[in-house]
Design a protein around this nucleic acid. Structure first.
Lengths: 121, 121
DNA sequence: CGGGATCCGTGGCGATACTG
DNA sequence: CAGTATCGCCACGGATCCCG
């Protein structure tokens, strides 16, 4: 009784489209990768920013809020002054890392071929 | 001697980012799926459009040109009047379908959980 | 039939500055 | 430290019109 059965890729609520709208956003997949490979599993905001060269505070904040909202990332606040906020992947987020890693592997193995195709054109 | 070694996800030429920039575009993954599941392997332009409800001529054209440029899709023109143009996945395109299908499976199995998380918020 | 060209709205995203 | 607020650019993508 899943909301949209297999093969129903093109209905208005298309799950694949909605997922790509999320992970296709510029920093999302980076956050997932960094959190998945983080040693303690939990990473603080500033730490994340350091491990993601080029990300602005705003976009990191927006990305994390979105992922938290989607239940892929969990937020833990230490009520100290100044506050410390830790982020980690939920089980759902960890499960997403699997197909995402497969996609990364494909990219790392085949982007060169795409570059070659572009060069010919 | 790959241009960017494993784990180098964040350099300027980050393969994963570049791949997501392509497949994250609205219609790309749909084209790949439709072509991958097409019966003869080759599909004509108008046929593709019929199988992708909501796509405009322009975006289908742009998407196909991009995929062709990247070497993921091959174009065959029958020099008749009016001309018939056929599209099919290249071997590279077919290989991309594998991790893409994994991502679709994840989406179809887990988007409900994401919806639940959103409902709670 | 299979597109290319153009106009234009919307939204992603960056830079900067401010706050609890 | 960890955000939020505001501004502005520009690329994605839809509608429409035209061409070989």
């Amino acid at each position: 009784m899943t909301p949209s059965p297999r093969g129903d890729l093109f209905d208005p609520a298309c799950p694949t489209r909605r997922l790509l709208d999320r992970i296709g956003t510029k920093w999302t997949s980076m956050v997932v990768k960094v959190l998945a490979e983080a040693d303690p599993g939990e990473v603080r905001f500033a730490d994340l920013q350091r491990r993601m060269p080029g990300v602005s505070q705003k976009m990191l904040s927006v990305t994390l809020r979105s992922l938290t909202h989607d239940g892929l990332v969990a937020r833990r606040v230490e009520p100290t002054v100044p506050p410390k906020v830790h982020y980690r992947l939920t089980d759902l987020g960890l499960s997403l890392e699997v197909p995402l890693a497969a996609l990364r592997n494909w990219a790392e193995e085949n982007m060169a071929a795409i570059d070659r195709a572009n060069a010919e054109a």
